[in-house]
């Protein structure tokens, strides 16, 4: 059984009277990708800041790779990589200079910046000033920077937000490669499709609390409904839509009846998205 890379117990943070994170407890196993989902202001960023040693919890405790984060900030930060949502590169420096600076701060002597840049698809532009890069290129460089120390735990905050499909796909591939390498990935995102595709488990956060935490499949099973949607031709020749709810005891007979009584033109299955489930649980959407 995999050990916990991250373990949060009753983790709490408040800004004055405002409770940003309200006694949350969860774990992330080594090598797992956890999608951390929630609308703006849900407390995701504050949670990440506590897990990365930027904020000291007001109550509760968090450990990373067995180390109490609040007491071992420097050691913890040597084991993690963080990719922020906002671009925060040294734009007057080149990509190579950016990566080498951070490698040196991590005390890494043998670092092949060019190879890392090839990996994120920035070969050929490595010596150009970052200010000349497109947003997608900058984001890929941000991901590259978060990997310079071969982190055991990787925190990614909206790594594909606002990117073109090719850049997004490139970053998703890197995330999966990192998981293959054995890294744990803590993925904060608004993109439900991305979370569904990449995450082993997802946590829904709302108003400072974790309101659901499970695999995407289990969440869909528990909160969503799957349905069979068919288009049938009526006696008058018009197209009509029929729906049969799946995963119920009545499903087999309902399907049989659908095909027996109608002329079925098209048929497809439909299942709830994570967004549907989030709305169902919290009563509000992710973008609210």
């Amino acid at each position: 059984m995999a050990r916990d890379a991250i373990l949060a117990e009753e983790l709490t943070y408040h800004y004055g009277e405002l409770v940003a994170v309200d006694r949350i407890s969860f774990n992330v196993a080594e090598g797992e990708i956890l999608g951390f989902l929630g609308p703006n202001g849900a407390g995701k960023t504050t949670t990440v800041k506590m897990l990365t040693g930027q904020l000291k919890p007001k109550a509760g405790k968090a450990t990373l790779l067995g180390m109490d984060i609040a007491r071992n900030v420097e050691k913890v930060q040597g084991e993690i990589g963080v990719c922020f949502e906002e671009i925060n590169l040294y734009e007057q420096m080149s990509a190579v200079e950016n990566l080498r600076l951070f490698a040196r701060l991590f005390n890494i002597r043998q670092f092949d910046a060019e190879a890392m840049l090839r990996r994120v698809g920035l070969a050929g532009r490595e010596k150009d000033r970052v200010e000349t890069y497109s947003k997608g290129m900058k984001q890929r460089l941000m991901v590259a920077r978060s990997l310079v120390n071969r982190p055991r735990v990787l925190f990614l905050d909206e790594p594909t937000a606002g990117l073109d499909p090719a850049s997004s796909e490139a970053i998703r591939s890197i995330i999966l490669e990192e998981r293959e390498r054995g890294a744990t990935v803590f993925l904060t995102t608004h993109d439900m499709m991305e979370a569904d595709k990449l995450s082993d488990r997802v946590a829904f956060m709302n108003q400072g609390k974790i309101v659901a935490l499970d695999t995407p499949h289990n969440l869909k099973q528990q909160y969503g409904k799957r349905a069979l949607k068919a288009k049938v031709t009526t006696e008058s020749g018009e197209l009509e839509e029929r729906e049969v709810t799946l995963d119920t005891p009545e499903t087999p007979s309902a399907v049989q009846k659908l095909f027996a009584q109608n002329k079925v033109v098209t048929v497809h299955s439909e299942e709830a998205t994570l967004e549907d489930i989030f709305i169902k649980i919290t009563g509000r959407g992710l973008t609210e």
Binding site: Q54, E74, K75, Q77, V82, N88, L89, Y90, L105, N107
Partner: peptide
């Protein structure tokens, strides 16, 4: 302003 301070202090740099 450019949030690079946050990037620095997330490394072992204080």
């Amino acid at each position: 302003e450019k949030n690079t301070l946050e990037a620095l202090v997330i490394t072992p740099t204080t």
